[in-house]
């Protein structure tokens, strides 16, 4: 088995496209299932999503899978572009009149273009979320609750005086909400006995000891990005544009999958009179449902 056969031959290149493509389809399913939690409203939804985001970042198996995913995307893109350049070279003079629509779907002929758009989308998408999550500054998952607590006792009546005091909590990775600050009723200023170091580590100011680790609040970032204010996050002023571009990108993904899904099976030689129709239908369903579900999330957030 020579190296050239596995990497250089036209058919082997296609196997790589098919394998990475199908793997990325799996990734899409996983990603979508996670994202669907964004429909889950309230603090519980937020907590679930952020816990999920943390899990995705820290689980070893997921980590391995994520590296495979990055590699797949890279390989799929580079290999795909290589193939596309070769294909371009294979017909140096174009037809004056070409009625390609008579014999093939436009998606099938535009895979490189669709793929390039998707690649750009992935890049911006990663800058917006993945990059921020990994390298940027993301506020921690905090929660401020007003609690009606006794603040003093009336010396005269001995009556307990209660007041609404806002307490702030971190959500910590051991699953608790840990109070770290409260609003001084007198000064009306928050007083904190904890501080955040290295983005997520919670230290007790007094003892200078790490007391817990907090969750990053990706949920609020997402909400803000798509125009929803919550928990004091930054709200994207161009959220409408983000939603629009996201939706378009998903449409592009849909076309890419409409051809790509079944095409991968064909490339791998998985074709049989009994099953090919099924593969095609599943592929078509996948190509419509998955991107549509992805697109529904920002639309839901934006219009909610």
């Amino acid at each position: 088995m020579s190296k050239s056969v596995i990497l250089k031959s036209s058919i082997a290149k296609k196997y790589w496209m098919a394998f990475t493509g199908l793997f990325l389809c799996l990734f899409l399913v996983g990603h979508l299932l996670g994202n669907l939690q964004l429909f889950y409203a309230g603090e519980e939804g937020r907590r679930a999503f952020n816990e999920y985001a943390y899990f995705m970042q820290h689980n070893l198996l997921i980590k391995v899978m994520s590296y495979v995913t990055y590699l797949s995307i890279l390989f799929h893109a580079i290999d795909g572009l290589l193939l596309a350049f070769q294909n371009k070279k294979a017909r140096p003079v174009q037809y004056a009149m070409n009625k390609a629509s008579a014999n093939s779907s436009s998606a099938s002929r535009q895979m490189a273009l669709l793929g390039s758009i998707i690649l750009i989308f992935i890049a911006t998408h990663m800058v917006n979320f993945w990059g921020k999550m990994h390298f940027g500054e993301i506020p921690l998952h905090t929660l401020t609750k007003a609690v009606n607590v006794p603040i003093s006792q009336d010396p005269n009546t001995g009556q307990i005086v209660k007041a609404d005091i806002e307490f702030s909590y971190f959500l910590t990775t051991n699953g608790e909400y840990k109070q770290y600050a409260y609003k001084d009723p007198k000064t009306k200023l928050f007083e904190s006995q904890m501080e955040v170091r290295e983005e997520t580590k919670l230290f007790d100011k007094n003892s200078n000891l790490e007391v817990a680790e907090g969750y990053k609040d990706l949920h609020s970032v997402v909400m803000g990005f798509f125009g929803k204010s919550a928990n004091g996050n930054d709200v994207n002023e161009l959220a409408w544009l983000a939603v629009l571009l996201y939706t378009i990108s998903m449409a592009v993904l849909s076309f890419h999958l409409m051809h790509g899904f079944a095409s991968a099976f064909q490339t791998l030689g998985l074709r049989h009179p009994r099953y090919t129709a099924i593969i095609k239908n599943v592929g078509m369903g996948f190509a419509i449902i998955v991107p549509a579900a992805f697109a529904a999330i920002p639309l839901y957030i934006f219009f909610k």
């Binding site: 036209s10 294909n87 779907s105």
Partner: peptide
């Protein structure tokens, strides 16, 4: 040989 002759790669368009 097919590759060496400069044909393009199959993208399963079915044309």
């Amino acid at each position: 040989t097919m590759d060496e002759e400069g044909f393009g790669n199959c993208t399963n368009t079915g044309a």
